[in-house]
Design a binder for these strands. Structure first.
Length: 454
RNA sequence: GUGGCUAUAGUUUAAUGGCAGAACACCGCUCUGUGGCAGCGGUCGCGAGGGUUCGAUUCCCUCUAGCCACCCCA
């Protein structure tokens, strides 16, 4: 941890002695304002409706499929991710935000959600609950990747995990959920799906793959040679033009799947067919996290959306071995994570959500200190009566307040000035016609309710 | 992390080796207890640092950030 450098303050020599508190930051002229940290971003009020729509849909879909909300901390022991996600993965090797505390703990900001949920499942003995345990979460993840459009160092994920049952129907239903989530928001997507088999069959396949590519080693690019050593499965995803021919003749994962994984995969696909959720088999989907087994899938924005950068919206799969890796009893699990930043940016670009609105039907304006006091109290009356009212009490001039009332689309303005306070009345102005009527201050709320048809 | 492109007001942008302009937005006035329309006025800017030059927003270098491709994926 870096300690903040103490601020040095040197008083000008000619100045008369001034007592300067060195712990107080003294602003200087022409000082640069502090900027966002690289890869971070502000979610502004103008984006709020899009995030709200996304959040609401997440709640709706989770509830519909019987998933309960939970939240794990943003900070975890580094070991959780090293063991869970895998030591030899990009996420852990180069994208983890890690540090050591003064107390000597090795901590990291979470790069994904599954490892934490599984940790929590073990720690809170959730295996004693009816299985499977179905939970969802919604929150920020951190990866120290190079930022780009649609790729931030802090990004938001909606994830669902189903732990405690290994049936293929669970894999299928998770995929259906992810697909429906974006579909119901108005985004067409494509599912790419593959099976990695069990860790044994995957290991066998990996060996076959390595020996195949080793024999062609001289034809590999430098990047691919590295992959051969580190993560041979990723060779299948290489975009190196010279690789296409080699890839075509390479051993296929399907041929190395054990019988059980093969049957499992077939059932997943059958279930998807049954529901009519479209998918593409893609042997190159291998996922960048080590914990996956059997089913893996990724969700991409449909082709007409691909002019937008970063079309991958999310992904997931089965992780039957993860529980043991993290020290729990053998328990199957499966889940997915969806990138909300990317989903929100599509909602915006396609105008799928009503733009931000601060419209109100009724606006409360005041004049003079007495009027302001009365209006402040009247505002509370309206609020308790459940009538949304706009106000800018901070502005003194009636003119400025009427401007705001107009901007916010108010149909009626309620005006209280000195005179009204003394008379115990209020003015109700029809903003369309400009007609005004004077009513008893005690009856304003009822009167407005009547006008609103409530 | 590697390579490339870019950086002018809150936003979208124009021009220029010699005073940096516009539109929208914001604030105010015309209208001192009343909004929309109109007219007028105002605030705010060359990402940071260095170099070349009489003079740099403009040319060069470094840094920073964004974007694009790779790497990966959310």
């Amino acid at each position: 941890m870096k300690k903040p450098e103490p601020k040095k303050v040197t008083p000008p020599s000619s100045a008369k002695p001034v007592s300067v508190d060195p712990t107080v930051f003294v602003p200087k002229k022409g000082m640069q304002p502090i900027q966002l940290v690289r890869g971070m971003r502000d979610l502004l009020p103008s984006d709020a409706p899009y995030w709200k729509a996304t959040r609401d849909e997440a709640d709706t879909i989770a509830a519909a499929y019987g998933y309960e909300w939970m939240e794990t901390p943003v900070v975890e022991e580094t070991a959780l991710f090293v063991r869970g996600v895998g030591k030899i993965t990009d996420i852990v090797e180069k994208e983890l935000y890690s540090w050591q505390t003064p107390g000597g703990e090795h901590l990291s900001l979470r790069p994904e959600g599954t490892a934490s949920v599984v940790r929590s499942y073990i720690q809170h003995g959730m295996f004693n609950q009816p299985q499977p345990v179905k939970v969802c979460y919604y929150g920020p993840m951190f990866r120290h990747d190079r930022p780009q459009a649609g790729r931030f160092r802090q990004f938001y994920t909606f994830g669902c995990e189903c732990i405690g049952d290994g049936d293929a129907v669970i894999d299928a239903q998770l995929i259906i959920m992810a697909y429906n989530f974006v579909k119901e928001l108005g985004i067409e997507s494509t599912i790419k799906i593959n099976s990695l088999g069990t860790s044994e069959s995957r290991a066998n396949y990996k060996n076959a793959l390595v020996s195949y590519f080793r024999s062609k080693r001289n034809k590999l690019s430098e990047e691919d040679k590295k992959r051969l050593l580190k993560n041979p499965l990723r060779l299948l995803d290489s975009k190196d033009p010279g690789m296409q021919e080699l890839k075509a003749e390479a051993p296929q994962m399907v041929d190395w799947l054990d019988e059980e994984s093969k049957a499992h995969f077939t059932r997943v696909l059958e279930y998807l067919d049954e529901v009519g959720v479209p998918y593409q088999l893609d042997p190159f989907i291998v996922r960048g996290l080590d914990y996956y087994s059997k089913t893996v899938f990724e969700l991409y924005a449909a082709s007409d959306d691909q002019e937008l950068a970063q079309s991958a919206l999310g992904g997931g799969g089965r992780y039957d071995g993860l529980m043991e890796i993290l020290g729990g009893r053998p328990t199957p699990g499966a889940g997915f994570g969806l990138g909300l930043d990317r989903i929100v940016s599509r909602l915006k670009e396609k105008n799928l959500v009503a733009p931000p609105s601060n419209q109100v039907d009724v606006f409360l304006a005041q004049l003079g200190e007495m009027g302001r006091k009365k209006a402040l109290a009247l505002f509370e009356e309206f609020r308790q009566a459940g009538v949304p009212v706009g106000e800018v009490f901070a502005k003194a001039s009636i003119k400025a307040q009427m401007e705001v009332a107009n901007k916010r689309g108010a149909k009626w303005a309620v005006i209280i000035g000195q005179k009204e306070v003394l008379d115990g009345t209020a003015v109700i102005r029809d903003m369309d016609s400009g007609n005004q009527e004077i009513v008893d201050a005690k009856k304003v709320v009822a009167e407005i309710k009547k006008k609103l048809g409530q």
